[in-house]
Design a protein around this nucleic acid. Structure first.
Lengths: 188, 188, 188, 188
DNA sequence: AATGAATGAGAGTTCATTCAT
DNA sequence: AATGAATGAACTCTCATTCAT
């Protein structure tokens, strides 16, 4: 992801990784409005250090998203390779919503585009995500467990909706996710 | 909706209504983080006037939501009385998402509880909404067009999700809403 | 005190008196920072009505002081006429501090000149007060109970100090007032 | 006085001290209602800098009071050690009122508790002050120059009163302070 | 004459970002 | 490279005063 000519000094790389981790946890728990100073404090670095690695708050958030997305995409491929093609998509969707969304306010806000535009911020991640989602969807369609008239973008939109539901009412989330995901199954 | 003993003076009522309208449009278009001063400017009043009618920014949100909710609830009853019980629920859901959601960031944010808690802010509206939704759902269930294993709260959650999808990508909204809403139909 | 050509209409006079009374109670209990709107509310009039009678907040406060001062001055003359010349001054000082000061934040603030300048605001009251104080002092000096080297202005200053003590710590006020007032007695 | 683990950076300490000094002068000259922005302007710093050092306006007051109190207490001990026990108390009281009070509205307001509660805000300062005052008083009582029936708290109250007198009318302050302080001498 | 709605200039406070150390 | 102090614009909210009703 990093394109700069020279690699980071070891301590700088450690700081960068630590900030990313703390920022994820903090955004996830408290949303995007947490002050940078607070993240710096929790990460045990100065605010200036965060700005050295991420020139704006939005950049920091984009980096967090890219980082997380990478994990999600990896999970998707793991399911594709190891699993049952007829259920991989549904497992994938449920796991994102239930595992991640449960504590992830920042991600929901970002996915819904409230404060940043994720397509702008992390186009590669977006693309990678749509790619794996498309493969999972195709597998399910070929296995006859998903309707033919939707594409990866539609499924992504549904996922955003599920994240919002999760954020809205986490108690209902599991049942409702099932209902919504049922909408993806073939009619009849 | 107004419960206070004496009615507002004509000019005050006019200002109040104007603020409410402008606030709705502004929140809808730009989200809940718009400054009160900006709303005041657009409404052509002083900031103090807004605070006279709505003692805090959150009160203003709540009032906007109540106002909008009232319209939504009215629409629901109109469909119940005039329409086909088997399709009223689906028409209702689609119309909320497509007509309103199209320009309504603030509503989505509020429904998803990002900045305010709508149950706290407007418990009557919430209740009225769940009531009409429940009636529409029961009608559909009796007509055999909706699955039996969901309740009004689940449908509400799904609606929140649809609003988020709408906000995320309005081009896909129509198709995706159909897919999600299909999840409410009886299996088989 | 009023100098305007035509007398107030009966209802206007009633309103004026009511505002004055409520303003006194409110300033006394809560200090000078109480909003005019709050006084209007408690008096059961509109804010505009207060401004009709008292063009600024400071004018209102001056009027309250004049009104109170009149009572104080009357009390002083009553003591002069009815009482023992050797004790009248001391009774007067103690009664002001203990009776009035106990609930009178606004008066202390004003006397100490924190927010308004009472000499500017109510020169006649100031003069009338100094006059009666001078007479009480002279009586005490002639009776041999007060030292000869102080004048009415010094006694007034001491009174201000006592009010401040009262406000600072009302439990100690009685004993401390006695101590301070003892300073006025002849040395030897 | 500072308890934090690590000392302030040199520039920060300079700014902190400068703010404290300017705040003292400004509160002293104009009372507690001066805006923070004005103090920032006079100190040549941004408003945010003041809030970094003193998280609320009240904290700034408290810090100013503590700072001043420290000087006062130091003066008291100097008098105790170097001076005549029979006159130290009286010198102390006069010097506080005449030297400090002359320009010190903010201190009077604070001592009298109009806007902040000094016992709450600076309990240690309060205690240290009462301690030195008690020692000065005991010395005077043993030397036979102060009456036996008062304690440090009463003397403190009297001092508050003197400050108020000073604020009320600085021309009379010297004579009146003498009169009041005379009240502390033994009767007869 | 009375009302109370409207005004708008600030108030205290926060925080993304910059920069001296 | 890292720090964290400083900045200052922006925010929400208050209230003395004015003015349409």
């Amino acid at each position: 992801m990093t394109r700069s000519a020279r690699p980071l000094r070891a301590d700088a790389a450690r700081n960068r990784a630590r900030v990313l981790e703390v920022a994820y946890e903090t955004f996830a728990a408290e949303g995007l409005s947490v002050p940078i100073d607070e993240i710096a404090r929790r990460a045990g670095v100065g605010a200036g250090t965060i700005y050295r690695h991420f020139p704006t708050k939005e950049e920091l958030f984009s980096a967090v998203i890219r980082d997380r997305m990478q994990h999600v995409v990896d999970d998707g491929y793991a399911l594709l390779e190891a699993g049952d093609p007829g259920t991989a998509l549904f497992t994938f969707l449920r796991s994102i919503v239930l595992q991640w969304g449960a504590t992830d306010r920042g991600l929901v806000e970002a996915l819904a585009g409230f404060d940043i535009d994720i397509q702008q911020a992390a186009p590669e991640s977006e693309e990678a995500f749509l790619t794996v989602l498309g493969e999972l969807l195709r597998a399910a369609q070929q296995a006859g467990t998903a309707r033919q008239d939707v594409g990866a973008r539609e499924v992504k939109a549904i996922l955003v909706g599920c994240q919002a539901m999760q954020s809205y009412n986490s108690e209902l989330a599991e049942r409702v996710t099932d209902v919504v995901v049922d909408g993806l199954r073939p009619r009849r």
